[in-house]
Design a protein around this nucleic acid. Structure first.
Lengths: 302, 302
DNA sequence: CCTATGCATGAGAAAAAATCATGGATAAAC
DNA sequence: GTTTATCCATGATTTTTTCTCATGCATAGG
């Protein structure tokens, strides 16, 4: 037993303003439109809402009752809607990235990101299991993918390029006769549930012998591996893009010229569904973040 | 901050039934219509209400919240509307008539009217001041009008025809030599705030002498005048239509063949505004009452 | 692996709503 | 008391919205 809903808006306005013409003005439609909507509503209800007395309108008894119902209803609906929209609008931009990317790429630049987004809050979720990515929880995600993800809104952020790295001090204190001898120092391995390319794969691909006589330290978390490298614990595989900042600042050095470009990439995954209908402001903030990511990490070659 | 309202109905149904297709079925529209309405609503809100997972839909967190709001709102609106419509629908058919018509024409036939209307209640308001007729209080009115009322929904019920009457017993006990002598018996006059045609007017128009030597009794209410006539108190002016029943039953007799057709009428006033949009059942009841009135009182000539 | 089911979507059809112009009716102003 | 201005109703027409149909894509289940 639902009445036609659009006329309710006209009715509410007409009651509040005491005139069809005024209601028409407020709703930016013609006077005739209001007249017809009210008539439609009355037609459905089966009784007149207004007593038309020539030039003025007056609520009937039933109209009075209904006006209060309608007004309250629309008010509540409006408030609920508004609150929900507002809440969503203010919801932080949520990024899900691998622990490595979060720790090595984002954390050092948090000040920059923060300045970029201004009032907009940012929520960062670091997690290595890409499969656990829930469509509803994130706006953006950055993950290493062996193949291009089927998701249409995925773009490569930077290619996977793997080099051997150690700290400057480690290299300097290491008496070497050749590059390939160097990688026979203490090898830092990253071992996590996800598959990582390991030293043997790398040595094989760049054409170095996979030596036997090395010391090995396993760490289950790539950021900690880097920590260990910085701490002069040995040599490790370095993913370009992840470690560029350390290379640029001279904390870490590339041991050899060898670089394995695997053909895989780190991908930027945009959650289109979640933001397709967001407000312009939110879309804009999101785009700025996207642009910043591209600016900061794309074309990190050579 | 009101959302587009029609999609709310689709949304509520989709949530309740867990499927756009099912909602489409319930609302008798195509599946695509529901899909578009939901999309429109999401577009307005700025966030997705459902999580589309291939073949099934799942409410998002925001969708869940909104669904509860919308459901409650529509429920309340529906109930209020339903209650009001129901109340109006059951409202008694209201007739406003002059005291004379109510007392002399309607009251004696109440059993008949009651049977005619069945469940539908009747409200009868007897009042002589036609100017006090409020558009909102009546469905039908019957009033004597000197001129045809300007109201379009007015039809003549019966013409004003005035004769002289008395009780059979009064006539029989009165030794008369001629008709015009008879009307010189005790004259019963009706004197009310409204203007009534009085004995001198009538005598003048039918061509009888206005005699001086009569006894006069004034009563401020026409039904009471008739009561007095029945009680053998004298002669009175009788309005055809009002007194036909008494004439037919022989309680009263027409004293002389003289009849003054004034050209004025009793009119049936239909409150079109109040019932134009009423339910078919109510309209039907109203029409039956109208028809009954016409059947019973129209063409009451000769 | 194939079929059945469910949602999205482009193009076109159908329906609804708005507009314009006009009329009637009233209140206010001269 | 006539005139003027204001307000609502309404017929005809145009504009806008909405729906439908057909199809595509993705998934679940046999």
């Amino acid at each position: 037993m639902l009445p036609p809903l659009k006329p309710l808006i006209a009715f509410e306005a007409a009651v509040r303003l005491g005139s069809f013409t005024a209601a028409a003005g407020e709703l930016h439609v013609s006077q005739g439109a209001i007249s017809r909507q009210i008539a439609q509503l009355e037609g459905f209800l089966g009784f007149p809402l207004f007593h038309r007395d020539g030039r003025q309108i007056l609520l009937t008894t039933e109209g009075e009752r209904y006006a209060s119902t309608v007004s309250t209803t629309l008010q509540r609906l409006s408030e609920s809607t508004n609150e929900l929209v507002h809440r969503f609008e203010k919801r932080p931009l949520t990024m899900v990235t691998s622990n490595a990317f979060a720790s090595l790429c984002l954390m050092p630049r948090m000040t920059e990101i923060s300045a970029l987004l201004g009032d907009r809050e940012l929520k960062l979720i670091a997690r290595d299991d890409i499969a656990a990515l829930d469509d509803l929880e994130y706006d953006l995600a950055v993950f290493y993918c062996r193949r291009r993800p089927k998701v249409p809104a995925a773009e490569p952020l930077f290619a996977e390029k793997i080099v051997a790295i150690c700290s400057r001090m480690y290299r300097d204190s290491f008496k070497v006769r050749s590059d390939d001898e160097l990688v026979r120092g203490t090898q830092l391995w990253c071992e996590t549930p996800e598959e990582w390319i390991q030293w043997p794969d790398w040595l094989d691909h760049v054409g170095l012998d996979a030596a036997e006589n090395y010391k090995r330290i396993q760490i289950n978390n790539y950021p900690m591996v880097i920590q260990a490298v910085l701490d002069n614990q040995g040599v490790a595989l370095g993913w370009r893009g992840m470690i560029d900042r350390h290379l640029a600042e001279g904390d870490l050095v590339q041991l050899t010229p060898h670089e394995w470009v695997t053909g895989s990439s780190f991908y930027l995954l945009k959650n289109k569904a979640l933001n397709a209908r967001a407000s312009a402001k939110r879309q804009n903030d999101l785009n700025e973040l996207l642009e910043w990511l591209r600016r900061s990490f794309q074309n990190t070659d050579s």
